[in-house]
Amino acid sequence: MVSREDLHKKKGASLLIAMFYIEIFSELMKHFDVGTVEQKLRQLGENIARSYYEYYQPKESSISGLVKEIASNIGGIKKFKLTRVEDGFIVSIFDCPLCLEEIEIEGPHYCISNMAILETLVNLTLQDRPHKFRYKQIIGDIISSKSSGAEKCVYHYRLVEK
């Protein structure tokens, strides 16, 4: 059996994830209310991030560096912008691996799992290397998502000081 460490170095088409994701999203929407679906998709992202962290720990020593490293090395995201705001920062993503431009989906913000992956990976790094960072945690929230009809996916992260 191939090891998961090796899988981090190998690449596959993100379309495969988009296929699984849209189907599980539709299945959840059939069975649960919007709030529950949102909570389950957030949990899905957190679970992925926790497992991912066992095999790959981001190296950067600033929060903006971490976000860039995770978005690029794990999410395969090339087009994104990081903006500082009063209570934290905003990540705007133009090429979300989960969202499908041609589809507009009703319900919770579609790529909430993506937002949760980024949040959890940053938080695990902050916990592991507390001496390197001024903040102890980030708390993410999704503002808009392409597949929910927006032009870009926008995630807001609040920075929590120690």
Binding site: R4, L7, H8, K9, K10, K11, G12, A13, S14, L15, L16, I17, F20, Y21, E23, I24, L44, N47, I48, S51, Y52, Y55, Y56, N73, I74, G75, G76, D95, P97
Partner: peptide, 16 residues
């Protein structure tokens, strides 16, 4: 193709 690490696909599939 737009690509991501196979580990992300592996874990996304497990969660699905």
């Amino acid at each position: 193709a737009k690509k991501v690490p196979q580990l992300l696909i592996n874990l996304s599939y497990r969660e699905t």
